[in-house]
């Protein structure tokens, strides 16, 4: 069972959720999952698009209370 890391990027203007995700994935093993929390609605669209582009898997995404979340599994 791989571990799931959570990045709380709510209220982060710089470097922002996707940059945090990219940096985190570099430190993770293939199969590990990371959940990114964001108050930027664009994250729900940008992160899955980018993950698909580079070949990572979006496991889950949606809106919860006052923020959006996306779970990505490192695939390579």
């Amino acid at each position: 069972m791989s571990e799931r890391k959570v990045i709380d990027a709510r209220g982060s203007f710089c470097p922002g959720p996707l940059m945090e995700l990219i940096a985190a994935l570099k430190l993770m093993q293939v199969g590990d999952e990371v959940e990114i929390l964001s108050t930027d609605q664009g994250t729900a669209k940008d992160v899955p698009e980018w993950a698909a582009k580079v070949g990572h898997e979006t496991v889950d995404s949606g809106e919860k209370d006052d923020h959006w979340f996306v779970v990505v599994r490192k695939a390579k």
């Binding site: 203007f13 710089c14 922002g16 996707l18 940008d46 698009e49 980018w50």
Partner: peptide, 10 residues
């Protein structure tokens, strides 16, 4: 740049 715009700050 790593993300979909030219800087992290919109």
């Amino acid at each position: 740049y790593p993300i979909g715009r030219l800087h992290a700050l919109e």
